[in-house]
């Protein structure tokens, strides 16, 4: 089973929820931090024995001896990563999405692919929770291939928890697609509601069942709850606004570490998600 933890708005508590879910099912779970532009689960779980591997995407390399400067490769490329002015093609690897199209359309077979590193995957054990996180290289724009590489670590039998990036961009879509359920974490504010609606729209297109966790209940207003009720969206859990939790967070402590009673709360959340998945 794969459970994605997503939100529209950033800073609503995705990582808090993802880490807590992983902790209550420790021993049979893998947590994938797919927020590759700013992975932060490791700050709370502090993995041991971290191993690192480089992730790259295939980019073209041109064999000048075979190239006839026909320009077909440049005509094909939508991203201006390869361009020919009736000359041997110019390459802009940082624009390449790694689709391989230029190689396929080259009538001379003059293009082959070489790997260009875009980031790393780091994995380590955190007391029964196996953490796998992607870390995109600074300045790199192309995150989805790295998210895909992280998701390849989803476990075959156990439970995979995916910590998704905020928003509804390509990276978020890549993180939540092919998951069995999405836990949307929001806050009861107008911003939280607005961005929740966007995320709900995206997940509905992907036809993935989902429910909502409202965090920091007590701030804002009741419109998130009204929205969920009117849309028949399951309200999975409400977490009260608690300064104690925020202070613990600022020290890199998990919510279960700060409030031990939360262990059973999140265990219930997991069982609820599990049953929602079976009903879907």
């Amino acid at each position: 089973m794969r459970i994605a933890v997503a939100s529209g708005k950033g800073g609503t508590g995705k990582t808090t929820v993802a880490v807590a879910l992983a902790q209550v099912i420790a021993g049979r779970t893998r947590l994938l931090d797919c927020d590759v532009e700013a992975p932060n689960c490791h700050l709370f779980l502090r993995p041991n024995g971290v191993e690192t591997e480089t992730v790259g995407i295939p980019v073209p390399q041109v064999d000048a001896a075979k190239c006839t400067a026909c320009g077909d490769c440049g005509q094909f490329c939508e991203f201006n990563a390869i361009v020919s002015f009736k000359t041997e093609p110019l390459l802009f690897p940082e624009l390449c999405h790694g689709c391989g199209g230029c190689m396929k359309v080259c009538p001379e077979g003059a293009i082959r692919e070489v790997d260009r590193p875009i980031g790393v995957i780091e994995h380590g054990d955190c007391g029964g929770v196996e953490l796998v996180q992607g870390r995109l290289n600074v300045g790199e724009a192309l995150a989805p291939p790295l998210v895909r590489a992280v998701k390849a670590y989803a476990c075959a039998n156990g439970v995979t928890i995916v910590d998704s990036p905020a928003g509804t961009s390509c990276t978020m879509i890549e993180a939540v697609r092919e998951c069995d359920y999405v836990v949307m974490v929001t806050e009861p504010t107008p911003f939280g509601l607005r961005d929740l609606k966007l995320a709900v729209g995206a997940v509905r297109v992907l036809r993935i069942p989902f429910g909502v966790v409202v965090n920091r209940v007590g701030i804002g207003d009741g419109r998130v709850n009204e929205y969920c009720h009117s849309q028949n969206i399951p309200l999975l859990l409400e977490i009260a606004d608690d300064r104690h939790i925020a202070e613990a967070y600022s020290r890199g402590e998990t919510i279960i570490g700060a409030v031990p009673a939360m262990r059973s709360t999140f265990a219930q959340l997991f069982h609820r998600v599990e049953s929602e998945c079976h009903h879907a």
Partner: peptide, 15 residues
């Protein structure tokens, strides 16, 4: 309208 590589695209256009 290019998402990236607008300068390269423009060079192709003027060429």
């Amino acid at each position: 309208n290019a998402s990236g590589g607008a300068g390269i695209q423009a060079a192709e256009t003027v060429s």
